[in-house]
Design a protein around this nucleic acid. Structure first.
Lengths: 148, 148
DNA sequence: AGAAAAAGTTGAGGTAGTCAACTATCGCCT
DNA sequence: AGGCGATAGTTGACTACCTCAACTTTTTCT
């Protein structure tokens, strides 16, 4: 007789499956907007009106600084993003969305925050349960990182 | 006064956040195994002892056939995967894991199916709720695709 | 048989990613 | 103040990934 799997492991696998199933949507959106997946992801990281140093982007993209240079070069070439010098530290360059950048990001954000049909169609108790469990998970992670 | 956000949208955002937080673990694992992220992902798609046509891989990786050729070339160069002709259709090539491929995939699979700490540390009711809600979501998607 | 479609490969061209070396700047330290 | 080590970003070389169009071989349809 098979031993029941840990519910956490099962949940984790299902989580993967749901995200995997949504990859096509993400790819299609990128294509519609004429962006590569990385460019779309990058655009989403930069919030409208907020200046972000390039090195912070490197952290969030989990890649190295020299790579960010290239990505930003291409975004800047399309006028989606602008490099500007930082006041207090002349080594750093701050990134800001241009008007066009904000526009594109707005469209992307609107689409991507829309839950996929299989989540949207869930009965309300399941939606709430999902939200509450995930909220607890994220909060516990935040607490863990804060205490480091 | 702010209107409460739809719990499904909130859940969806949190889901993203959890997966995002886990990317470093995935990247680190790939690096340890000496694989690129795509190679690791590909290896996970091919189940031990199961022959997979290349075109099916293209579908699962959401990319085109010519790209699969390159990815498989590199995996084959490392003896993780083997191309073999299909019996009934001489156009298709079937991929199988080599012994070494199964070994590496085994390690990867063992690590990746392990839920991240923030999920593992959840109280049991939350774990079960998460599993049940996600199971329902995945099942409803499967039902939808089956009826097409 | 002959046309159309499918599986895989090749080559050209662009994006993404790493690493090492370099420049400019900052911070500290005594 | 002068000097040294760290940090931010860039550049260049090299690899991996990815798409598109063109091509070969084989299958399928009619």
């Amino acid at each position: 007789m098979a031993v029941d799997k840990d519910p956490a492991s099962e949940a984790w696998e299902l989580l993967w499956e749901v995200m995997q199933a949504n990859k096509p949507r993400f790819m299609a959106l990128a294509q519609e907007l004429g962006l590569s997946p990385v460019q779309l992801h990058t655009l989403r990281i930069i919030e409208p009106g907020v200046e972000v140093p390039m090195s912070s982007l490197a952290g969030k993209l989990f890649c190295d600084n020299s790579n960010v240079t290239g990505i930003v070069d291409r975004l800047e070439a399309r006028d989606l993003v602008e490099r500007r010098p930082a006041e207090n530290d002349r080594r750093v360059k701050l990134l800001v969305l241009t008007a066009e950048g904000e526009r594109i990001r707005g469209i992307a954000h609107g689409q991507m925050t829309q839950p996929p049909p299989e989540i949207a169609a869930l009965p309300i108790e399941h939606k709430r349960a999902l939200r509450d469990a995930l909220r607890a998970a994220v909060d516990s992670r935040d607490a863990a990182t804060a205490s480091r």
